[in-house]
Design a protein around this nucleic acid. Structure first.
Lengths: 116, 116
DNA sequence: ATAGTCACTTTCCTCTAGGTACCTGCTATC
DNA sequence: GATAGCAGGTACCTAGAGGAAAGTGACTAT
């Protein structure tokens, strides 16, 4: 939504790392196709309104596919798309960095706060 | 700031991809040590208040180092730390993904909007 | 007859990140 | 003596994201 000329990855950051998209994508990547309530329950703290919003947006962006089954009660299944799955290496890289360096961040914070 | 139990990379996303941190980190990585106003001008649309906030936060997290020179006029230099630099592969991965797949996102959006 | 399921939608409300605008102390420059 | 530059700090304000709670419609199970 911003120009941010200085940073070429700004658009993809907006796309992939805006609020709730990572938990949704991660969950969908781990558990395959899931129904709305399953997704809701796995993520735990998200409200249905926001979950719908995010899913619509991600469907529009082609990261997620939505399959509607006109039954009663209705059944809707969400699945990560091929495009969404192509983000896996990036996510994996982040997980690795996290494992290696998150402790250092905590140390840095303690040092900065003088609580060492 | 959230639990988000379902997603192990949530903490690092909060850390690295919160607003303005990517442009700042990117700029600092490209141009080496920079003074406050140089950073401000390169990023272009950021306000001094927010830039200060973000820089303090990133200094606390150990991603950036701040060097104060008690001269007149005062000179302060910001530099990306080793920890910050260790994010380079992740950023590179994102840039690559961007180059390869951002067009697909646009296509998906056009398809979704019916403007094809 | 009542309650429950699913996949949302709608309304209302709060909260805070971030923007605007102005201030500081010190100096060099016009 | 007025202005500009540096590196911010401070007070105020607003838009908009996101949460809470209730409703919907069609059906089933108890």
């Amino acid at each position: 939504m911003e120009s941010e000329l200085a940073c070429p990855i700004a658009p993809v950051v907006d796309l992939v790392f805006s609020r709730w998209t990572t938990p949704i994508l991660w969950t969908l990547n781990e558990h395959g196709r899931l129904r709305f309530v399953e997704l809701e329950r796995r993520i735990g703290t998200i409200t249905p309104k926001v979950l719908t919003q995010r899913l619509r947006q991600m469907e529009r962006d082609g990261l997620v596919t939505r399959t509607y089954h006109p039954e009663v009660p209705p059944r809707v299944e969400y699945e990560i798309s091929e495009l969404g799955r192509s983000l896996a290496p990036v996510f994996h890289g982040l997980a690795e960095w996290s494992k290696r360096n998150l402790a250092k961040v905590d140390e840095a914070r303690s040092r900065y706060d003088g609580t060492n």
